[in-house]
């Protein structure tokens, strides 16, 4: 990519960010709900915010390259109802996540499912999650 093209792309990305509406209560077009990869990595950042809580972690792909994953959950009230808190994850935590869905564009971006699917420092998270039943979400039973 030439410098000029790269600059234009960067400009468009910036303008895109400025143009999108504020909120995000909408459909599922960017995600493939039929794919549920399990990825293991180390937490780099945990953001407890609206409209979505999200977790960043680094994981190696099949070629040994580090992928910077971002996985989004629902909003803080929904996550609180699932036993999460602002302090549930911290940088350095080891996580193993089975995604509820992943970005269609192949970027390392996913969405949490609501049952099972999260191993935090070797234990199911949140405690008791392994006992939760069908929520109507897309994550397959573990």
């Amino acid at each position: 990519m030439s410098g000029k093209v790269g600059a234009v792309v960067v400009m468009f990305v910036g303008l895109f960010a400025a143009c999108v509406p504020l909120q995000a209560h909408h459909g599922n077009a960017s995600f493939d709900v039929s794919k549920h990869p399990t990825v293991k990595g180390i937490v780099t950042e945990y953001v407890w915010a609206n409209p979505h809580v999200y977790l960043k972690f680094d994981a190696k792909d099949e070629n040994g390259q580090v992928q910077h994953w971002v996985v989004e959950a629902s909003n803080p009230p929904d996550q609180t109802r699932q036993g999460w808190t602002k302090f549930s994850f911290k940088p350095g935590d080891e996580v193993e996540l089975t995604m509820g869905s992943v970005a269609r564009n192949g970027q390392p971006i996913g969405r949490f499912g609501f049952r099972g699917g999260i191993i935090l420092n070797g234990k199911p998270f949140p405690p008791g999650a392994e006992n939760a039943g069908d929520t109507g979400e897309t994550v397959p039973k573990q």
Binding site: H25, H52, A73, G83, I109, P127, G128, A132, T135
Partner: peptide, 16 residues
């Protein structure tokens, strides 16, 4: 764009 998670949460982990 990334969607919100539109789940009706009808279940929650034991003890929560």
């Amino acid at each position: 764009f990334v969607p919100a998670v539109h789940a009706q949460l009808n279940d929650q982990p034991k003890g929560v």
